[in-house]
Write a protein that binds this DNA or RNA. Sequence first.
DNA 1: ACAAATATGAACCATTCGGTCAATCTATTA
DNA 2: TAATAGATTGACCGAATGGTTCATATTTGT
Lengths: 215, 215
Amino acid sequence: MGRRDISKLRRAEYAAAAYRALMRYGNDGTSLARVAEEAGVSKANVLHYFKSKEALLAAALRYANAELLREAVLLLGEARTPLERVYAVVETNLSPTSFRPEVAHAWIALCAGVPYVPAYQRIQTVIYARMRSNLIGPLRSLLPEEDAALLSDLMTTAIDGIWLRCGLSLDGLTRQAARAQLEAVLDARLPDSEERRAAKIRMLEVARILVKARR
Amino acid sequence: MGRRDISKLRRAEYAAAAYRALMRYGNDGTSLARVAEEAGVSKANVLHYFKSKEALLAAALRYANAELLREAVLLLGEARTPLERVYAVVETNLSPTSFRPEVAHAWIALCAGVPYVPAYQRIQTVIYARMRSNLIGPLRSLLPEEDAALLSDLMTTAIDGIWLRCGLSLDGLTRQAARAQLEAVLDARLPDSEERRAAKIRMLEVARILVKARR
DNA sequence: ACAAATATGAACCATTCGGTCAATCTATTA
DNA sequence: TAATAGATTGACCGAATGGTTCATATTTGT
């Protein structure tokens, strides 16, 4: 049975390599040869574990998604109130592991491929569904149904826009500037309050601690 | 000198064909052969007018940009007050000529190529600079400097996010929903007022008239 | 009318792509 | 130790890519 283990290992290894290639070279720049080189093995061997390039890239994006999910779960686990849950989502999307041009590159490449690669479409749908459910839950307990839905959607679009700018990195969009923008989005519907400020500060602190602990 | 005219004509013709191909097939799906087919001429002929594929695609995006610019100029020309100028920008980005999945596809492809194609980077920089200057001018006369800058940036990111979603078209993001989101963004800093509602209604009407007239 | 300039397209080139295959190598097991 | 199942690889394939060449057709100025 010592041989089955290596199969799981290789699959994870090559998915990670494909993700690195996706970050560095973009969607069309990521060839099987490049992924194989990244993993230090032959192209044929990569195809031995993934029957097609599409399957490989889908695995790569599931891998990346799982990475972000781990971060989200950790932060949301520490959130005690609805407001803290909202800020947990904000800080998750601004965490140093996610909010990097390389990661954003991979994500934009994913978006660009959505119309042509069915697997990408499915992954993207999952990501959006999770984002929405994470946001609309806490918001519903803070706002009228209609406003909760609107603010949830608006937060999602704003996060999309911020990640896009991060990926383009034409101007150096800092984490602070991005945070200020998302804060302003919340201003649109969420009244300023002492609890809100406290929730923001606490989740920022929790995020800081988790990042430090991770390293 | 009747010969130089055909050169300009062909260049515009092939740029438009390249743009159509970009919308339909994405960045890597757009080959010289495909563009040539789209234009109904030979591949070599296309390359006769554009020395490289990169030059062709750059021209295609300048063409698309000019298309949107024309729309923006028309709307902004009808705006009489700062508030109307803000809503002119909003309606420009939601106009039926721009706010279509095909157009958004091309734009996402452009974004995905930015890190690798220098020409794309330059075009994207120009687009953002124009958007910012169109927004920050009127906003400065309505808000403190700091808020004007923040709201301008936030409007830009929100528009990015909306276009991205339009391109993915996983959920059918309607023009109305997008307009509601941008309206909510303005709520974050711009006080509700009679003038604001009037400005919104007027630019919406102007946009409607212009679209009808165009056809 | 004619030579120069330009426009055009078919065939072609080298390269890269995703993917296949038969041949090796390796490690477990009988 | 011998057999075997799985891991790994280099060589190779057809298709498609961006880009070039060159012979032919068309238009232009004189």
